[in-house]
Amino acid sequence: MKINAVTAALGLASPAQALLRFGCAKLTIQRLDPLVTPGQNPSPHLHQIIGGNSFNVSMPHPEHDLPSLSTCTSCQFTEDFSNYWTAVLYFRARNGTYKRVPQIAQAGMEGTQGGMVVYYMSDALFDTAQKSTVTAFKPGFRMLIGEASYTTRDQARDFRQLTYTCMENQASRSPESIGFPKTPCKLGIMANHRFPTCWDGVNLDTPNHRDHVAYPETGTFESGGRCPSTHPVKIPQILLETVWDTSAFNKKEDWPADGSQPFCWSSGDCSGFGSHADYVFGWKGDTLQKAMDGHTYVSAPMLKTQSIAEQNKCVAKEMVKENFDGWLKALPGGGGMPMA
């Protein structure tokens, strides 16, 4: 899937300097993955999805145009019909049964049902100037960060900035760990998914959903590293923050007898190194470019917003009928370690 050279050149000529931060409510929780396993119903493991309600089993470009097919979005900005999704977190009890971990809204977004907080940045989160030039994504753009099958630290080195924060309170943002926290977290566990920030300027997608994007040559997005010559176009940093409310599972007597941490992704990974997230661009028209051109920090007066109540009302149709709540003998799809 490619974008023509003229369009790419126009994108390069359009500077954008801004930081957007907004909440998105849960759109649906289903065992579907139109990026990795398009057309497969159900997919191997469970995902939590936010964004436009045209999310479906298969979403080919250009046939599946999210802004025109969606009638609502679970995100604060009504022009954003993109879809974002991650795996779902489960607690594994000492007897081997699993229970889905609920989510908690961040401060100022109370009342949001599940979901995540989404960032689009030109520079580091703490940099209020946001001076760097970035190019907004194009229709049909999609990408994947992380690998669900990874279970070791060495494997996880393939990706940068996929981390966890053991939250003492709503203000907690450090320290960050690469694997799951080893001790109980008073408020919960925040999963941080930071996507690559360099694009080849041609391909909207690639077979593995990764090769068209890259990390800076050195360091990270926050450290101002230069994009490699193979991927010269600097795109916004997308950061997803999901706060999993693990407070109900903090009793050490409920944790594994060997003292290891008890949380697992719905993919079956209990190390935390299999953290992953998917993105399918779906902003209406050129609204994202205009917002990034707005030189704003967090606020975006050029975009339309909706209330949390309206966000909560936006849901996708149920396409997989299965139980993923309550105490389960195995993870949905059969992943993880079965009950003894």
Rank of each mutant, 00 (worst) to 15 (best):
L35I: 14
A248W: 00
D245L: 07
P139C: 09
S177D: 03
Q261C: 02
V233H: 01
M292A: 11
D154V: 08
K313R: 15
M302L: 12
G115R: 11
A9C: 05
L125I: 11
P42L: 02
I3W: 06
H193L: 13
I49C: 08
V6G: 05
R92D: 04
S58R: 12
A148R: 04
P184I: 08
P216Q: 05
R153D: 10
P232A: 12
K284F: 01
S132N: 15
D123C: 09
Q17S: 15
A13I: 11
A340F: 05
D80W: 00
H61A: 14
A5L: 15
D127L: 07
A148W: 06
P216F: 09
W283P: 05
H295D: 09
Y98K: 06
S43M: 07
T242Q: 13
A129N: 15
W283Q: 05
Q311I: 02
P42V: 01
P184Y: 08
D123T: 14
L69D: 07
G274S: 04
P181W: 03
T152F: 12
E318A: 13
W199Q: 10
W327I: 03
K313Y: 01
T206D: 13
I3R: 15
K317V: 11
A18V: 09
L328C: 05
A316N: 08
N203Y: 02
F281P: 05
R173S: 13
T242E: 14
C198Q: 10
L66S: 09
L240P: 12
G140L: 07
N250R: 11
H212W: 07
L125K: 03
D80Y: 02
P38S: 02
G219M: 04
D33L: 10
E322Y: 07
R92S: 03
K290Y: 02
K252F: 04
F91S: 11
K234S: 14
D286F: 03
G268R: 08
C198V: 09
L288A: 11
H64A: 12
G219Y: 05
A136F: 07
A248G: 08
C72Q: 01
N83A: 11
C198G: 10
R31C: 05
D211P: 00
D211C: 01
S229H: 05
S299D: 14
A124R: 13
V315M: 08
I104C: 01
G146Y: 09
H64L: 00
L12A: 15
D293I: 00
C166N: 02
A9N: 13
C75S: 09
D293V: 00
A277L: 02
N203C: 00
P38R: 03
E322P: 03
D80M: 01
I29M: 13
T71W: 00
L12R: 15
N312F: 12
A330Y: 09
A25Q: 05
S174G: 15
M339C: 08
G96V: 11
M339P: 00
F221A: 05
P67D: 10
A107M: 01
T206P: 08
E79S: 02
C72W: 07
A257W: 04
F141Y: 15
N250Y: 03
V36T: 14
L20M: 14
F273M: 11
F195M: 08
A330I: 14
V280W: 06
T287V: 02
I189T: 04
M339A: 15
A13H: 08
S74M: 03
G140H: 04
